[in-house]
Design a binder for these strands. Structure first.
Length: 358
DNA sequence: TCTGGGGTCCTAGGACCC
DNA sequence: TCTGGGGTCCTAGGACCC
């Protein structure tokens, strides 16, 4: 039978940093931003010791340092995490020849592995042995009969979070979720527990009386289509039922867009500075486009005004191009279409590639 | 809690064409 | 001429995820 395994590396960023800084073991470590908690930035990862103080990812660094003044603050080192991640993905791909496994990467610290096997638990065990042996990084594995169930299964495989009150988490490193146990495991949980339902959607569903996964599963797709969108509405019901794509895609991922953005240490009040920042980002994005080897079809600019109002403007290029001067000039044209309202907190530039609709 | 950076996909309205 | 209906592209914004 075909099985989907979801591999999730434990504390990935913190683990990579600890490999480089073994002397920090056991200490509260906070990774994120420029590693300076007096500057703007948020926590990418907090070590378990830092979490004891209530520090968690997404929290502003300024808040983190207030909660845990003794923490070690490290800057995010994306190239290092990319390299470590690639090492893990190579190990996973190593199961291809022997197990017919296919790997679909979902970011630095996650991947789906699809394989036809009678012993998914055995494959999960071998992955949990081989990855640390080759990379010194540990992982949990969720087993499912599709991608959604495998992904959610991993939540139950992880060690229970301190603040989740042991809400059914078993934390043995592996967990299996299929059509057989979907309702008993997930039925009473809030819809927010589903991969793809966030706070906003959960609130909208709750307004319609759909609070739990079971209630959502029994929802009426047509009614939700009218309320929440022709495609999203029915999809949410499918999520409630635990249904999703079954086949793991092994083809290399092709980026749809490449972008860069920057939050300034202090808000920019002079539009000339905003233009200079946008031009700088445009040149970097153009270099990324060239590196990608595919021309950009469209460019977009994002401006976040103080205190936190975000606006976007975009333009389709006369023809797809990788030319830096054209991209930069178009970005500046688009930028000048913004209404200048407040000091500028952030500027972002994004290039979209020609859509390769299969 | 004064809220990063890198992405993906969906929606809805208007333009424009036949 | 007072007004249909479908299709597609463009654009801005929203929601979500890692």
């Amino acid at each position: 039978m075909y099985w989907v395994l979801h591999v999730d590396l434990d504390q990935f960023i913190a683990a990579v940093e600890l490999l480089r800084h073994p002397e920090l073991a056991g200490r509260p470590v906070v990774v994120g931003g420029h590693g300076d908690p007096t500057r703007r930035g948020v926590v990418a990862t907090a070590s378990y010791a830092a979490r004891e103080f209530g520090v968690h990812s997404g929290m502003p660094l300024r808040t983190a340092v207030r909660r845990c003044p003794d923490a070690v603050f490290l800057p995010a080192d994306n190239p290092a995490y990319e390299a470590a991640s690639e090492g893990v993905m190579a190990v996973l791909r190593g199961f291809g020849p022997t197990d017919g496994a296919v790997v679909e990467v979902m970011g630095w610290d996650e991947a789906f592995v699809g394989a036809t096997t009678d012993d998914p638990e055995g494959l999960a065990r071998r992955i949990r042995e081989e990855v640390p042996e080759q990379t010194q990084l540990t992982c949990c594995v969720g087993i499912g009969d599709n991608l959604l169930r495998a992904k959610i299964a991993t939540e139950f495989a992880k060690p229970p979070a301190r603040d989740d009150g042991g809400a059914g988490a078993v934390g043995t490193g592996t967990f299996s979720l299929t059509a057989q146990n979907w309702d008993v495991v997930m039925g009473d949980r809030p819809t927010r527990a589903l991969w793809g339902i966030g706070a906003k959607t959960a609130a909208k569903l709750a307004e319609r009386g759909l609070h739990t996964v079971r209630e959502l599963a029994n929802g009426e797709p047509a009614a939700l289509a009218a309320d929440l969108g022709p495609s999203l509405g029915p999809w949410y019901v499918q999520l409630g039922r635990g249904l999703s794509r079954v086949q793991v895609r092994g083809e290399p991922w092709l980026a749809r867009s490449r972008g860069r953005e920057e939050t300034f240490a202090a808000d920019l009040t002079d539009w000339a500075d905003v233009r200079a920042a946008a031009a700088d980002l445009a040149r970097k994005v153009a270099a990324d486009v060239v590196a990608e080897g595919r021309p950009a079809a469209r460019v977009g600019v994002k401006v976040r005004f103080a205190p936190f109002t975000t606006r976007t403007r975009s333009a389709t290029l006369a023809e797809p191009t990788s030319d830096a001067a054209t991209i930069e000039a178009t970005v500046l044209d688009v930028l000048d279409r913004f209404t200048r309202r407040r000091p500028v907190r952030l500027v972002g530039v994004r290039a979209e590639f020609v859509t390769t609709d299969e």
